[in-house]
Simulated assay, not measured.
Amino acid sequence: MIRIDIAQKINNPSALTQEQGTKIYNAIVTSFEHKEDVTLDFANVESMISPFLNNAIGQLYGKYTGEYLSKHLHLANFPSVKNSTLNVVISNAKKFYADKDAFTETAKDVLNIE
C-alpha cells in the first residue's frame, strides 16, 4: 500500500487548487496502474476546498468504479468538517461520469455556449 502525504506531495498545507488536485490524482492513478492500494493522508492539511477535491478524487470516477475506489482508495486523517464537501464532490462526479455527454450538453444550454 502506498501512503500519500497530501501536504508533502503538493508542497503546501493548503489544498486549494485544481492543479494541486491533479498532482494527487496522477499519483493515485500511477499507484493503481502498479496494482497498489492508496491511502491519502490529510494529517498536515490545514485547509482544503472543493476544486482540489474535484480533481484529486472526483476525477477518479471517470476512470474507476465506485466499488473499485471503495476497495483500493483509503483516506486517513480526513477532517470531519470536510465530509459534506467530499460527499458532494463524489455525488457530482458519479452523476457527471454516468452520462458525461448529456451533462455537457445541459451545461452548454444553460450557459448558452455552442
Rank of each mutant, 00 (worst) to 15 (best):
residue 40 L to Y: 06
residue 65 T to V: 02
residue 94 K to W: 02
residue 99 D to Y: 07
residue 23 K to Y: 11
residue 88 V to N: 08
residue 101 D to W: 03
residue 87 N to W: 00
residue 25 Y to R: 07
residue 95 K to A: 01
residue 50 S to E: 13
residue 72 H to W: 03
residue 29 V to Y: 05
residue 33 E to T: 05
residue 85 T to C: 04
residue 70 S to K: 14
residue 81 V to K: 15
residue 4 I to R: 09
residue 98 A to C: 06
residue 49 I to M: 00
residue 93 A to Y: 10
residue 90 I to C: 00
residue 57 I to D: 05
residue 101 D to A: 09
residue 9 K to H: 15
residue 56 A to Q: 05
residue 25 Y to N: 12
residue 41 D to Y: 06
residue 41 D to P: 08
residue 92 N to F: 02
residue 56 A to L: 07
residue 22 T to P: 00
residue 31 S to Q: 11
residue 59 Q to I: 09
residue 39 T to K: 12
residue 6 I to Q: 04
residue 53 L to V: 10
residue 23 K to H: 13
residue 46 E to L: 07
residue 28 I to A: 07
residue 24 I to S: 07
residue 40 L to S: 02
residue 30 T to H: 14
residue 57 I to S: 07
residue 87 N to R: 08
residue 54 N to I: 06
residue 105 E to N: 11
residue 40 L to M: 07
residue 15 A to V: 09
residue 30 T to N: 15
residue 109 D to H: 15
residue 81 V to I: 15
residue 60 L to Q: 09
residue 45 V to R: 02
residue 62 G to P: 11
residue 110 V to S: 04
residue 79 P to A: 08
residue 85 T to Q: 11
residue 47 S to P: 02
residue 92 N to Q: 09
residue 27 A to W: 14
residue 96 F to V: 01
residue 70 S to Y: 08
residue 32 F to Y: 09
residue 40 L to P: 03
residue 71 K to L: 05
residue 64 Y to D: 03
residue 111 L to F: 12
residue 107 A to D: 06
residue 60 L to E: 06
residue 91 S to M: 07
